[in-house]
Amino acid sequence: MTKPLVAVSTDVRQFENYTWHAAPRQYLEAAVSAAGVTPVLVPSFGERLDLEGLIERVDGVMLTGSKTNVDPALYGLEATEENGPYDRDRDATTIPLIRLAIARGVPLLAICRGLQELNVALGGTLDSEIQEMEGRIDHRAPVSDDQDLRFAIRQKVEIKPGTCLAGVFGAGEIMINSVHRQAVGRLGGRLQVEAVAEDGTVEAVSVIDASAFAVGVQWHPEYWAKSDDNSARIFRAFGEAAAAHAAARGRGRIAAE
């Protein structure tokens, strides 16, 4: 009996005289501890990868957050220095991977940049620097070197009744963290809004016609997955979906203790 395998997106980074394809530990820790899955990092090599072969071998896809933004050229706008930085190698990998996961019924959890990738992959657009838009609140992290302060749970969102996340949290308000300056602009055609902030900013979406769990959240549940029940719940829901997918394909799972 084996745990579900989950493909995890990677960022391309330059440091220590190397080019790294990497993912932050918090996402991987939450995948292992809260979702109960085995994460597998997918290098951002775009069309050089056999993504169709990959999607046949995994039981879920998890897209991480990042300091980089999706290239605006992918939704019809011009890339500017102010809107960056970008990671076009990641875009070239995650956008087709998202479409394949949905088409093949592979569970998908998209976090922060991942939600934005999901929206763009399904024909939506993004708004940048939303804190400068009339009627919007500042969704960026507080300026601090203390990561716990930056990722503090401090903002309300409203979970819409009858949605996938209503089944996870119940409908109504929950408290989340907020660390973003971009947000959904025009919603992708196959998406429905799952949760909104007090200023109307889209904070979660799901794929309407997906045959498996396919949810994106703008906040960062990975950061507090060990200590905050709401943060853990979404990983447990994703892990259960991945386990069901594995079982349906005859791979089984390790039973929860």
Rank of each mutant, 00 (worst) to 15 (best):
S178M: 06
G200Q: 12
A214D: 01
V202R: 06
V202K: 12
E203C: 02
V193D: 07
A204K: 07
D199V: 03
E173W: 09
V207W: 03
E173D: 15
F213I: 00
A166G: 09
A171L: 01
A210I: 06
G216V: 03
G170F: 08
V179H: 13
G189T: 15
E194A: 12
V168G: 03
V202E: 06
I208F: 00
S211Q: 14
V205T: 14
V217W: 07
V196W: 00
R190A: 15
Q192E: 15
R181V: 11
E203Q: 14
F213G: 01
H180M: 13
A166R: 07
G188V: 13
Q182M: 10
A214T: 00
A195R: 10
A212Q: 15
E194C: 10
A171R: 12
A210C: 04
V196K: 13
Q182A: 14
A197L: 12
D199G: 08
A214S: 07
Q218W: 05
V179G: 00
I176K: 01
G189Y: 07
I208W: 02
V215P: 03
V202S: 07
G200Y: 12
E203K: 09
G172P: 01
V184D: 05
V205R: 04
V207Y: 05
F169R: 04
N177T: 04
A195N: 11
S206K: 01
V207L: 10
